[in-house]
Amino acid sequence: MPKIKAEKKSRIHNDIAKQGIQFNKDFGQHILKNPLIITSMLDKAGLRPTDVALEIGPGTGNMTIKLLDRVKKVIACEIDTRLVAELQKRVQGTPYQAKLQILVGDVLKTELPFFDICVANIPYQISSPLVFKLLLHRPFFRCAVLMFQKEFAQRLVAKPGDKLYCRLSINTQLLARVDMLMKVGKNNFRPPPKVESSVVRIEPRNPPPPINFVEWDGLTRIAFVRKNKTLAAAFKHATTMAVMEKNYRVHCSLNNKEVPEDFDIKQKVQDILTKEEADQMRARTMDIDDFMKLLHAFNAEGIHFA
């Protein structure tokens, strides 16, 4: 019994790559083997010879080698020490060796250095946190060309009213311009994943919009929990009201403002939504300007979402 459990836990592929490495599904390891797709991704990144490029999950280095050929320096972030050794072996004794810096560890927990461009075949299970880690990274990078699971990529570019439009769509588009570049079939990977993939180009808005992203995220979180319901209904939940009342009281305390004895957070929220003609609006059809206007209206009345 313990043996079966251990085998299930490791979930390591039986098929062995040419390099003699077994790919580990726990790390989302699906190595991109088609050189034409790698070349196309690099072409669309607009690389310059002076660039510092960040690659996440370099695997066996198929993209890394082509990157090293085009830029000044490559910073490769890899969690699997077996692949790190393989990558080091591949550049050893070549002119590429001095141009490659390897960061060993989980990219989500790693402090990323300065880079101009990010090109990567992303381990799909870290897609969402990684996008926001990159978009909140300073100093700004020029652009990122990233491979995602097809549906995740579609969510990134979805517009108000689209079926896949969600909090991820609006939060990403607030901070960046996002374009779909190409679809990539499963047979371009070794081993093939269960889903189709797509490549997306993300270009951070620099300077970013003059808005507190933590507050913005708090507002969109409430609105998109039930994106088909009206905002009036979305804001009625007891836990939401409790948090908003607590934030309001903290705001008043910090600004030496007295909270009226008959203060009613429900009524306050309803009044703001009605005044902004937003009470009957639904998150699934609201754009960035709609949410920005609403956030300013709440903040002006001392209601915060941080």
Rank of each mutant, 00 (worst) to 15 (best):
N14T: 14
A17Q: 07
I21K: 05
Q22R: 15
N24Q: 14
K25T: 10
G28H: 05
H30M: 09
K33F: 01
K33Y: 03
N34T: 13
N34A: 08
L42Y: 00
D43M: 06
K44S: 12
T50V: 09
A53Y: 05
I56D: 00
I56E: 06
I56C: 02
M63Q: 03
I65R: 07
I65E: 01
V71I: 14
K73R: 11
E78S: 04
D80R: 13
T81F: 11
T81R: 14
V84W: 00
Q88S: 11
Q92G: 04
P95K: 01
Q97H: 05
K99W: 00
I102K: 03
I102P: 00
D106A: 08
D106N: 15
V107P: 04
K109Y: 04
E111A: 13
E111H: 12
P113W: 07
F115T: 02
C118S: 08
Q125M: 12
Q125N: 15
L130H: 01
L134A: 07
L136W: 07
F140R: 11
R142V: 09
A144H: 07
V145G: 05
M147D: 00
M147P: 04
M147W: 03
Q154D: 09
L156R: 00
L156E: 02
V157S: 00
A158E: 03
P160W: 02
D162G: 02
C166D: 09
R167D: 01
R167F: 02
S169P: 04
N171E: 08
T172I: 08
L175A: 10
A176L: 08
R177H: 14
R177K: 15
D179L: 10
M180I: 05
M180K: 15
K186E: 11
P193S: 11
V195C: 09
V199W: 09
E203L: 08
P204C: 06
P207K: 02
P207Y: 01
I211Q: 09
I211F: 11
E215L: 01
W216C: 08
G218H: 01
A223S: 13
V225S: 13
T230R: 03
A232M: 12
K236A: 14
T239M: 12
M244Y: 01
H251F: 15
H251Q: 12
L254M: 11
L254H: 12
N255G: 08
D264P: 10
Q267N: 13
I272E: 09
M281W: 05
R282C: 07
K293M: 14
H296I: 08
N299L: 07
A300F: 10
E301Q: 13
